[in-house]
Design a protein around this nucleic acid. Structure first.
Length: 119
DNA sequence: TATTTGACCTTTA
DNA sequence: GTAAAGGCCAAAT
């Protein structure tokens, strides 16, 4: 966390995703205005390996599909967590995805500064 | 130091 | 309308 790399920003934004809401790789990438959506998913992959407490289960692809479920400890963990938060998931897809969609921009323009503050 | 990979998105045929 | 390929850029090997 000492040096704000791309992961740092992705982790910070992912952590700020409110429960019961889901975001997309493109939304995070667009908010960060860096790299591309691929990097977001790639960064989240390391989130578990690095032991970060990042709610990666709240991040899905543009179609609302749980594309990253296969990378979780268990393939059903992602779906279980979302359902536990009140997000309806069926067949590996988020129901009413647009209704649960959440854009990082909702945090405000000062978030990225707060995220980089040492804590 | 150079090459390969990656939980995606957008555009064109 | 569906299908395929390209583009994006950083991190690990």
């Amino acid at each position: 966390m000492a040096v704000p790399t791309y992961h740092t920003l992705v982790f910070a934004v992912a952590r700020e995703i409110p429960p019961g809401r889901v975001s997309t790789y493109g939304a995070i990438a667009d908010y960060l205005a860096l790299g591309s959506a691929r990097m977001v998913g790639w960064a989240l992959n390391k989130s578990f390996a690095a032991g970060h407490d990042v709610p990666a289960h709240r991040v899905v692809n543009r179609k609302g599909e749980l594309s990253g479920r296969a990378h979780f400890p268990t393939p059903t963990m992602m779906e279980e967590l979302l359902q536990a938060e009140g997000v309806a998931v069926a067949d590996g897809r988020v129901q009413d995805f647009e209704a649960h969609f959440w854009h990082p921009k909702a945090l405000g323009d000062d978030f990225e500064i707060e995220a980089l503050k040492p804590g």
